[in-house]
Design a protein around this nucleic acid. Structure first.
Lengths: 327, 327
DNA sequence: ATGAAAGCGCTAACAT
DNA sequence: ATGTTAGCGCTTTCAT
């Protein structure tokens, strides 16, 4: 491996000059700079980031934690964060926590030392664990509310209220909410919104679950839903809604006619299903962007600068998986 | 931030002892070790990985590059690699190259300095770029064939041959192949396999595309397929096949009856579609596991050790999107 | 504009 | 078993 010193020797200058030629080019005479850069190129030299990090105390990268990288919902999130970070010369390291609570903290600890900041999407780890991390480096959480920890939450109340209102307008009197992972912030928020709205619109609510936030969770939910007698269901997320539709269809029900289904997230698959899925569009990418901006502000010491998060809203996308109640 | 030195001072020992207490605990007297570890804990000290990396010349992490993190196909791949790497005390940094050829190399260059090895899945970057990387650190590529570069390829010939054979047996005489990204190794391999098999079984082959390897690519393919007059199509991957089915249905055709569709990958969605998708199961996770093993061998200097890759096979999963040719 | 030297936090011979 | 010392490759005062 070629180092600064090699280049310096060959170019007949000091290490400092080579260093400067890379980091503050204008501070070195054009001629010298040219010679240095040329020999650097000739020697195929690239500055060692590790050494650089040690010297300046920053790594130039951030960690992004998502609960399930296989969930189509997170694809756009990851891509968006990566694209925006790049503009700030930050590399993003994405880690999948796989809903695996203990590992999540261990992994975060590791990451905490090779990153300048952390973006935690729907973290499941304990509050204590998160507070521990925030003590070590800048952290912004998405979809979690912990006193003192900078956060962006994806709103669910407006969309969920619209969902219930929509079902009420279609004549449904008894609906079900299909819980996702029981203890998560997201599930609590969505369930509370549905509960409040059903009371407001005078609907009967049955709560089913919890179900894992995956397709097979929805499959399992199908039979429970039928047994419940509800004429419509609002699922924790689209993956569950998709599995649900599948199972209902297998059971001979026509989704959108005999029974209505609403999801949450609006993943790219949602408009493509048969029938297309009515769902709440949650602005995940926007939330992630907003969170990244906050994180960078904190990392740059602009801690209290414009810390008003971008106002976000969720919104019901009406498609064909919901229809007038069957009589 | 607390350092080794702080702990050493407070515990009344030298830095080396503290260092040893962490890295080779048995080499330090139990009593001393206890005292050191206690004060380390008390001071909330965690060894700085960056400094450690610089000193030992290894980072303890590897980079995993995938073309599209949003493709459900890669979810299991990423999870598998992460799980296996963890057993070797390696952290995995996943990067999405987003089919963005230039960036891919730049990102890889960056990663090359904070990782001990690289796993490149279906890389699109130039051969020169890959060779450049292999000169810097251990690299294993998946689904690409470059002389001198360790590789694992996911077989497509057997599965594709079975696919064509299957269609021939169903009475199809004219089929279409829907190309993915034109220049990729994977597309060339799959197309060649289909071509050879159609010749062998005496079928007429129409080649359509190239299409982007996403759902909307398949949508666009639908009308072209109908115009071609073929009675069945084999798509580059499942995402294209899904979009295709969607469009064919919109055009009033009954997939599996009026026209047959075969995909490639066998993503988790494939059995869930209406009708369930006949597709070639490609052992991506197994390939990734095998590639990781090779990478670790190379990193550990066991370069030429058991370098026989695990034999892999692809296999047709027959479902309902294929059926006897309509007469 | 350039150089010399100290130091980032850790590890690894080499001593003792 | 523990301490001393010299780096790992880079940045950054402080001189010149």
């Amino acid at each position: 491996m070629t180092t600064l010193a090699d280049v310096a020797a060959k170019a007949g200058v000091s290490k400092s000059t080579v260093s400067r030629a890379f980091s503050r080019p204008e501070s070195v005479r054009a001629e010298t700079r040219g010679r240095v850069l040329a020999t650097a190129h000739e020697l195929a030299f690239t500055p060692n980031r590790i050494a650089r990090s040690l010297a300046i105390g920053r790594t130039g990268s951030i960690g992004l934690f998502v609960p399930d990288i296989a969930n189509p919902y997170f694809g756009p999130v990851i891509k968006t964060v990566q694209r925006n970070a790049r503009r700030h010369d930050l590399t993003v390291f994405t880690a999948d926590t796989d809903e695996h609570d203990e590992d999540e903290h261990a992994l975060a600890q590791t990451m905490a030392q090779q990153a300048d900041g952390l973006l935690l999407f729907s973290p499941r780890m304990s509050e204590a664990a998160i507070l521990d991390l925030t003590g070590r480096l800048p952290v912004v959480v998405i979809n979690r509310d912990i006193p003192g920890v900078p956060a962006v939450v994806i709103p669910s109340t407006d969309g969920m209220t619209q969902a219930v209102e929509h079902l009420a307008a279609l004549g449904h009197r008894h609906i079900a909410y299909l819980s996702g992972p029981a203890t998560t912030f997201s599930n609590r928020a969505r369930r509370a919104a549905v509960l409040a709205a059903t009371q407001r619109f005078g609907l009967q609510l049955t709560q089913l679950g919890p179900f894992e936030a995956v397709f097979t969770g929805g499959i399992r939910a199908g039979d429970l839903l039928i047994a419940s007698g509800a004429t419509a269901a609002i699922a924790y997320n689209d993956l569950i809604a998709l599995g649900l539709m599948q199972r209902l269809t297998e059971r001979g029900l026509r989704v959108g006619n005999d029974i209505s289904v609403i999801g949450f997230d609006d993943i790219w698959l949602a408009p493509m299903t048969q029938p297309p899925l009515t769902t709440v569009r949650a602005p995940a990418a926007a939330a992630a962007t907003s969170a990244l901006r906050m994180l960078i502000d904190i990392m740059d010491g602009r801690a209290d600068a414009d810390r008003r998060p971008t106002p976000l809203a969720s919104e019901l996308m009406v498609r064909l998986s919901t229809g007038p109640v069957a009589r």
